[in-house]
Write a protein that binds this DNA or RNA. Structure first.
Lengths: 116, 116
DNA sequence: TTGACATATTCCCATATCGGCATATATTAG
DNA sequence: CTAATATATGCCGATATGGGAATATGTCAA
């Protein structure tokens, strides 16, 4: 079995750096394909292809305006990713806690707890 | 250029469903490869391969205990993903805001306000 | 040592990728 | 209508994938 299609879900779609950049770029306002091309310095066919993937997984929305296509990020579709990552929130929360505790008890370094 | 390697960064690594499952499984306690195999009903070589990818991007840590390898999730490595998704938080925050306002002004439950 | 157990690696294969380039489609202007 | 602009699609090639089966490596027990 090959790797899951990039358009199979949001988790796969955001694996690509350029697609994440596009999502960021489209987060504020809707943008034309041409604006993305010049704004992010990508080639037009590449942008169109990435937009197709993003559209297929619902990460962007489009509407037509004359001969322009106006794309915008659909933040709702990012929420599942957010929720998934939040599942691990306690890790860095604990980390901050530990750092704070260590600072407060400002004593001794634990001897090298080996990490592989 | 082919797709970026699955072990090139966390964004690519979590694209795979089984890897996300493994990360969830290893979030509470450290686990043996065998435990992952039986716990998630995967084949051992498959698990070992996924663990390798996860290890390469720092999403899991290992230590050896006799002939067992004990893996655990390194939540810290998920934080960048969390931060990235949080960039879009206002999308669903606004959504909730709108829902709340509607509820307050109407003083009743809105019918079918779909939740994902 | 030998054998049993735990995990990692290798090989094969069908598939999807992304970038470039060329081209097709769609829409408006004149 | 035709030309020009905006976007989408098709084709190519190099590459990495993930599953499965077989096998290699590593560690302990007797």
């Amino acid at each position: 079995m090959p790797r899951a299609a990039t358009a199979s879900d949001a988790f796969n779609a955001i694996g690509e750096t350029h697609r994440r950049e596009i999502l960021g770029y489209l987060a504020r306002d809707e943008r034309t394909v041409g604006e993305i091309v010049t704004g992010l310095r990508l080639l037009q066919p590449s942008v169109s292809k990435h937009l197709r993937v993003l559209r297929e997984v619902g990460l962007v929305r489009v509407r037509r305006n004359g001969r322009h296509m106006l794309y915008r990020t659909n933040g709702e579709a990012i929420r599942p990713l957010y929720e998934w990552t939040r599942t691990f929130e306690r890790f860095w929360a604990n980390q901050l806690q530990r750092v704070k505790e260590r600072a407060e008890s400002k004593g001794q370094e634990g001897p090298g707890t080996a990490e592989i």
